[in-house]
Amino acid sequence: MELRVFTEPQQGATYDDLLAVARTAEELGFAGFFRSDHYLHMGGDGGPGPTDAWTTLAGLARDTSTIRLGTLVSSATFRLPGPLAVAVAGVDQMSGGRVELGLGAGWFEAEHAAYGIPFPGVRERFDRLEEQLAVITGLWRTPVGRTFTHEGRYYPVTDSPALAKPVQPGGVPVIVGGHGPRRTPALAARYAAEFNAAFTSPQDAARLFEGVQRACLDIGRDPGTLTLSAAQVLCLGEDEAAVRRRAAAIGREPDELRTNGLAGTAEEVLEKVHAFASAGATRLYLQVLDLSDLEHLADVARLVMPKVG
C-alpha cells in the first residue's frame, strides 16, 4: 500500500506551513503530498486565509525534489480548462514530472458565493467536468506541431497549439473520484489514471471499485490500468492517550474517528489499512488536519509504513 499525505489548507495554513509538511513527508518516505482545492474554510475562522492550490503547488515543485504533488481535487467550476492545462503542465515542468491532477465537479456552494464563482446545478457541473476532462487531456495528448479542436457546449476550442506540454509522457495523470453510480465511474474509466473513493468504509470502497472496473470493461479498457485509491482522516497514537490528544486537536471524538477514519493505535490503523487493501486499493491518502503536528507523520512512518510497503 502506497501512503500519501493529504491536507486541507483552507482550514488555515500558510505556504510555509504546507512546505514544512511536504518536506517532512518527503524526508519520511511518503509517496505524495496532496492538498484540497478550496477557498473557504469549513469550520473555525479559516485564518490566515486560503492559498490557491496551483500557486502553492508551483512553489512546492521547486522547494521539494522527489515527492509527488497534486490536488484532491480541483473543482471544474474554478478555472477554464485551457488555462488550467497550461498551469498544470507548467507545474509539472517545474517539478520534473511529479504532478497529478485531481479534478471534480465542485460541490461547496457557499464557497462559490463567497468568492464570486458561478455555481450551476449538479447536472451542468458534471457536464462541464466531462468537457474539461476532454479538453485538458486532449491538449496534453496532441502531438507537438499539431493543433487541437474541441466542439463543446461550454468550452469550444479551435486550432489550439496545445502548448505547454507536461514532462510526463501522455500528460499529467488525472484522478477522478466520487460516490456516484453512473457518471463518475464512466468519467474515470475514460479519462483517469486513478479512481479515488474518499471518506467511505472499506466495504463501500469495494463497491465503488467494482463499479468503476465495470465501467472500464464497458469501453474496452483493461481495469488493471486504473489505480484504485482511498482517502481517510488520520488520527494515529502510540497509545490511547495520544489518540485522544490528537483527536481533540482537530475537534473530533476518538470513537467517531475510529468509525469514519483511520484512527487508533498502530494495530487498529493497520487493520483498517489492510481492509482497504483487501477491497482493492493500492494507494491511501492520509488526511492530516493538524499541520503543526509533524510528529504525527513520523509516527506513521515508524509504526505503520514498514508494515504496509
Rank of each mutant, 00 (worst) to 15 (best):
T142V: 13
R258H: 09
G171A: 14
R123D: 13
T7L: 06
C216S: 07
V212L: 10
L289I: 07
V88N: 11
F78S: 00
A301C: 15
V172T: 13
L297V: 10
E8R: 01
T282H: 03
T227H: 11
A298E: 12
A241M: 02
A89G: 09
T7Y: 00
P118W: 14
E8F: 13
E268L: 05
T149R: 07
E111P: 03
L289P: 00
L257I: 11
V288S: 01
G211V: 10
D239V: 06
V5M: 05
A298W: 02
D218P: 01
D255M: 02
L19E: 12
M1G: 08
L284W: 05
T142A: 12
Y285L: 10
P254Q: 15
D299L: 11
Q10A: 12
G104R: 04
H41V: 13
G261V: 05
P143D: 15
P83Y: 13
R123W: 12
V176W: 13
T158F: 10
F148M: 07
E111N: 12
V21A: 00
P143N: 14
E271S: 14
G264A: 06
W107R: 12
I175E: 05
R207S: 08
L3N: 14
R214M: 09
G82W: 04
I219V: 12
E267F: 00
D159R: 04
C235Q: 09
M305T: 14
T227M: 13
Y39M: 09
P156V: 09
G97Y: 05
R141G: 13
L289T: 05
F30P: 03
G171E: 10
G171M: 11
G180Y: 10
P173I: 15
A241V: 08
L284Y: 08
V167K: 03
K307V: 03
G90P: 00
A134K: 13
R123T: 14
Q232K: 14
G224S: 11
L284P: 02
G82Y: 06
F108I: 10
D293S: 06
L291P: 00
E130L: 04
L297N: 09
A20Q: 08
V308M: 12
G180N: 08
E295M: 03
V144H: 07
T259Q: 15
A241F: 00
G177I: 13
E27V: 03
V144N: 07
T137A: 05
L228P: 00
A301W: 07
L217Y: 00
D239M: 06
Q11P: 01
V212M: 12
T265R: 01
E240P: 01
T7E: 00
L187Y: 09
L69C: 07
E100C: 06
R68G: 06
L294N: 02
V212D: 03
E130C: 05
D299W: 01
E210W: 12
Q93L: 14
D290Q: 11
L294Y: 04
H112M: 14
L286K: 05
G211P: 04
L129C: 12
F34I: 02
T14G: 06
R125S: 06
L72Y: 00
L208R: 15
L187S: 08
L234C: 04
Y285K: 00
P166W: 03
D222W: 04
L103H: 15
L19I: 08
R123K: 15
V172R: 04
R214F: 05
D159V: 05
H179C: 06
F195K: 04
R125T: 08
A13T: 01
L103D: 11
H150C: 02
A53K: 02
P202T: 14
G102K: 07
G102M: 10
T77I: 13
L234E: 01
P185E: 06
L163N: 01
